[in-house]
Amino acid sequence: MSYIIQLTMSMLDGIKYTVGLFGITLLLSMPIGLILCFVRSGKNKVLSSVVGAYVWLMRGTPLLLQLYFFCYGLTFLPFVGQYLVMGRFQSACVAFVLNYAAYFCEIFRGGMLSVDTGQFEAAKVLGFSKWQANIRIIIPQMLKVSLPPISNESITLVKDTALVTAIGITEILYFAKSAVNRDVNVSAYIVAAAFFLALTYALTALFKYLENKFSF
């Protein structure tokens, strides 16, 4: 039992990276995704295609590849590479934010398509400018439809954070793996699993609460 407690304590040290990466990614990729969604659905054809290509690229290649690219590859870019040196955690954050923004862009776009055009028209005849209409009328309705897929995506994100163990960031799984190797005992994996389960459980509860709030 004391062995389990000792494992848990050592993993708590790694949880700051797991939770930190999760929090930073979610906090930044959602607003970026929302902006991308408006650009993607906007009138400017060129910008819209650029975002389309971006989404295709980020969703069509492995996150692990993107992680390696930003952590190890960036510095080898000609000319600009030398200015793009980042710490490992920073580069992990960049890779995750850029990747997840693409997914959130598509989720929000689905939400936007689900809002009846009559809502835009009603806002317009009441005198709302495009932005006022988006902020007061359209986005709240988009969020309602987007919440279930956002919830799914966040749970995926919690689990995806384990990928950064591949670039040597000492998050939960990193500790678990070294403990298993060191002690020749599988318990550490089970403790790590419990950590992830606890996190995803808390998230599920949070999103359930939000979905209730948005059940107009």
Partner: peptide, 16 residues
């Protein structure tokens, strides 16, 4: 256009 208003067949109330 702000001098005018419009009422639609489908009401288009803001549901939220």
């Amino acid at each position: 256009c702000a001098k005018m208003g419009m009422v639609f067949q489908n009401f288009n109330l803001f549901p939220h």
